[in-house]
Design a binder for these strands. Structure first.
Lengths: 108, 108
DNA sequence: TCCTTTCATCGATGGATGTCGATGATGATA
DNA sequence: TATCATCATCGACATCCATCGATGAAAGGA
């Protein structure tokens, strides 16, 4: 996928078609992954360490374990985080490039 | 509101409380405003001009007029855009500081 | 005054989403 | 093997949200 500047003028005259629907949807999907307080909190915690055990998130988030698992899934499917298992534990970490791309989208 | 780095380590030990719930909600609310393809497309169009007439958005977006009005309201209440009326027409423009703050939130 | 245009609001509806208890899958341990 | 801990999935439920037709408000023109 190419760079997707929202603020850089890749368009528009008054009759120019809007941002390609597929690109708009893809971008919206990533923003949607950040559109929940619990997921913002998760990303915030992940940003402070290389990886974080799900058990720590469960302890920190004041939400039921299935709920945390659901939010992690949303973030994972959006490509913002990735996970790996070591033994019984699952560890999650950010995908910095994904956040950086989203950041680039916001201008600059 | 202070800077809200998601990627900058303002926290966390394993037992550190998560990002303040209020701040997480406020941030999530702004991301939620961008979590829809139509609103991404609107912001994209606004980013290409100082201001855009609602009539142009109606023409460009392939959505019913009340739907566009709804999305503009969401963006307005999130503080990402602002509007003014001149005669019969309403013009919308971005609030660059709001987008810039959101951008700062994503790291960098 | 009457009509048209522009835009916002209202009300209804179908679909998406957050939440959690129950259950399942997998690995560690005794 | 039996048990326990960790985490994902399932199913149900309540709430939120995108969408649109109908209507209202405000301004301009005939």
């Amino acid at each position: 996928m190419q760079a997707l500047p929202l603020l850089s003028p890749i368009c528009c005259g008054p009759s120019t078609p809007p941002l390609d629907a597929g690109e708009a949807s893809a971008l919206a999907a990533k923003f949607k992954a950040l559109a929940d307080p619990a997921r913002v909190a998760i990303v915030n915690r992940l940003s402070a360490a290389d990886e974080v055990c799900v058990c720590d998130l469960n302890a920190a988030l004041d939400l039921a374990q299935p709920t945390v698992s659901h939010h992690l899934r949303v973030l994972r499917e959006a490509g913002l985080v990735e996970s790996s298992r070591r033994g019984t534990w699952a560890f999650y970490r950010l995908v910095p490039e994904a956040l950086e791309q989203l950041r680039g989208t916001l201008g600059g």
